[in-house]
Design a binder for these strands. Sequence first.
DNA 1: TTTTCCATCAGACCTTAGACGGAGAAAAAA
DNA 2: TTTTTTCTCCGTCTAAGGTCTGATGGAAAA
Lengths: 213, 213
Amino acid sequence: MIRVVVVDDHDIVRKGVITYLETEEQLEVVGEASSGTKGVEIVLAQKPDVVLMDLIMENGNGIEATREIMSQLSNCKVIILTSYYDDQQVFPALEAGAFSYLLKTSSAEEICDAIKKAYGGDTVIEPKVANKMMTSFRSHQEKPHDQLTERELEVLMCIGEGLTNQEIGDRLFIGIKTVKTHVSNILSKLNVNDRTQAAVYAHRNGLFRIKNS
Amino acid sequence: MIRVVVVDDHDIVRKGVITYLETEEQLEVVGEASSGTKGVEIVLAQKPDVVLMDLIMENGNGIEATREIMSQLSNCKVIILTSYYDDQQVFPALEAGAFSYLLKTSSAEEICDAIKKAYGGDTVIEPKVANKMMTSFRSHQEKPHDQLTERELEVLMCIGEGLTNQEIGDRLFIGIKTVKTHVSNILSKLNVNDRTQAAVYAHRNGLFRIKNS
DNA sequence: TTTTCCATCAGACCTTAGACGGAGAAAAAA
DNA sequence: TTTTTTCTCCGTCTAAGGTCTGATGGAAAA
């Protein structure tokens, strides 16, 4: 029997996973938790073989919980099960000691399989996540806007608000010619043709200014 | 029996919800889908009473899918079930015709209850979301893009993709002059100054095209 | 120190966008 | 039927956007 603990603040996800895992004879769910801090408690009490861990939770995130679990129970395998596969989530999680990394788009079978493999000592990485890792290993340049300078990023956020070059210049206290230079550089770095596409890019990649309304 | 379709690109969430719903005697899951586009197909085929819809999905987002479903089956109740409750998700979803709005932090019982209430004609709104709505109603204003004609909405979505007037003309098989006319009308109706602001508007209000991958 | 990168600005040049006015045809509403 | 709406298109004009080349001073890295 492989002893499993499930940590996720989404009630449905937790129930769904548990319901499925219990149909598997080799698996036994010995605990569940709805936050990172509670998860650590239960894991330390139950000492399971495998932990299914969500990353983003309301109280105590999964990365901290993973780090804590690994420092106490190094033979426990933590499998990350989350919706996100952006760099800000993946790399800290792996660095915290996660053993496998799955996405919630995975099928129930895949998750079950990953648990068994983790128990046997095999890591399972979601292809999309693996892809991230590879590109990161190859060239340390991920998203196009990582190449942007700080100033260019400011200008891009202004474009994302729909400002004209003149308005951008007024806001940043620089001339319109300078703004044009920045815009040109931004467009070529992002590999887009005009400011509208740049604005779309900004919105698709969550590049907003934090408003203090 | 209340006929339900579940649309969510997270396999576990979908399975979890379905597993739970099937323990309820009054409910019958008549379909499931892992993307917005597939969801629309299945809903149109099955004509369920209630649809549980995730918002952020890989192929075809839930907002467009909801809009499409409501335009075809206006008596079908779409319940949004998502992780997010920021303005950019909530308002477009409600405006697209969502009947209820739940978060994935809701318990299985709450979701089940919401389905039954939706079937009976009662809307259920998560308190956090309801709070957002209240603050918005105080400064109640109709969405400017309600005034747009169908054609103008198409053009606006093209702008939101970053297309030029020429490219829009090519895609819609109309002349660039016509496109310019539409754009001018759109800009004045949305009360913005240029296409970039229009693109920003489109993205803030979830006006995207459903891609058929 | 030398080199590289960044932010700033300039002028010339061309393309695109957008405003304005006008107009015909088809469809829907009155 | 008449009226209104919508979609289509034209020409002209001005402003804005964008490219290219080039230049300066400063800061950081080599």
